[in-house]
């Protein structure tokens, strides 16, 4: 790693001030992706601003609209244990990485990084969540801008994520055998006003909504409704672990399984 300093603010205001001090400063969530990246010397921040000591952005609650609101510095393990009102989300969090990673990794860190194979982007997009920052609220549909790209501006800090709770939902992950990240992960959520299907791991554009499946499921929320739908392998990630066509095929399989699991 290149040399850098670490700041450990205890209030959001302090963190914001640190982030504003230099464009070379970078927020540090649980560090489960950032630290390996730093080890490879792929980033050279001047300072890391650790967000895990800020109590005001940690924890799970419910807002007046009945949304599950998760502080950005809440760990995956805490969401797995605490998001009882949204079982599909808790289950997703409880299957990210491994137990030690879940004890450090945070929802804010995962969404800020927007790894194309991460789980949380599928949950956020699939739930039509709202990403709250120190500056504004960003609907999930506007937040994800492709692999590792988000609507976050320089220095902007995610503080909270608000998830509307669906009637039914499930996440199905087909793991890449080495990294155990999603080779394909599909989050399906049925709301009163429609169905959302978000796919991670598959596309070169990062997490995306499979609108064709959403339309089919809106009128018939059953695995059978997805039968016959297919995605093109073009634009899908093609690598050692599977071709674009294989990933496209898996999206269909995982969608069906998610619908079946959602009940």
């Amino acid at each position: 790693m290149y040399a850098f300093d670490i700041e450990r603010p205890t209030t959001l205001a302090e963190a914001v001030k640190h982030m504003a001090a230099s464009e070379e400063n970078q927020a540090l969530g649980g560090g489960q992706t950032l630290i390996p990246t730093l080890k490879q010397r792929l980033a050279s921040p001047e300072k890391l601003i650790s967000l895990t000591g800020i109590d005001e952005i940690r924890g799970i609650c419910e807002d007046d609209a009945g949304r599950i609101c998760i502080g950005a510095a809440t760990t995956h393990a805490e969401v797995a244990a605490g998001a009882t009102a949204y079982p599909a989300l808790a289950a997703l969090a409880g299957n990210i990485g491994d137990p030690a990673v879940r004890n450090r990794g945070t929802i804010g860190g995962s969404l800020a990084n927007n790894d194309p194979s991460a789980c949380y982007p599928a949950a956020a997009l699939g739930s039509g969540a709202t990403i709250v920052t120190d500056k504004r609220e960003i609907p999930a549909d506007d937040y994800f801008e492709g692999m590792f790209a988000t609507a976050l501006e320089e220095g902007e800090i995610i503080t909270e994520v608000k998830f509307p709770v669906p009637q039914k939902a499930a996440y199905m992950k087909f793991e890449q055998p080495a990294s155990r990240f999603a080779l394909v992960g599909v989050f399906v959520a049925k709301y009163a006003d429609g169905v959302r299907v978000a796919v991670t791991g598959a596309s070169e554009e990062g997490v995306f909504r499979w609108s064709e499946a959403e339309a089919a499921l809106a009128s018939d929320f059953s695995a059978g409704a997805v039968e016959g739908l297919s995605l093109s392998g073009d634009g899908m990630i093609s690598d050692l672990h599977g071709s674009g066509d294989y990933r496209a095929h898996l999206v269909g399989v995982m969608t069906k399984r998610a619908v079946a699991a959602a009940g």
């Binding site: 489960q32 491994d98 137990p99």
Partner: peptide, 22 residues
């Protein structure tokens, strides 16, 4: 690999993926 797992405040963490300062 997990060869570095220790407990921090009672929880298992990978000590190679956490700064001493934290």
């Amino acid at each position: 690999c997990g060869a570095c797992v220790v407990h921090v405040d009672g929880k298992a963490v990978k000590s190679c993926t956490m700064f001493a300062a934290e």
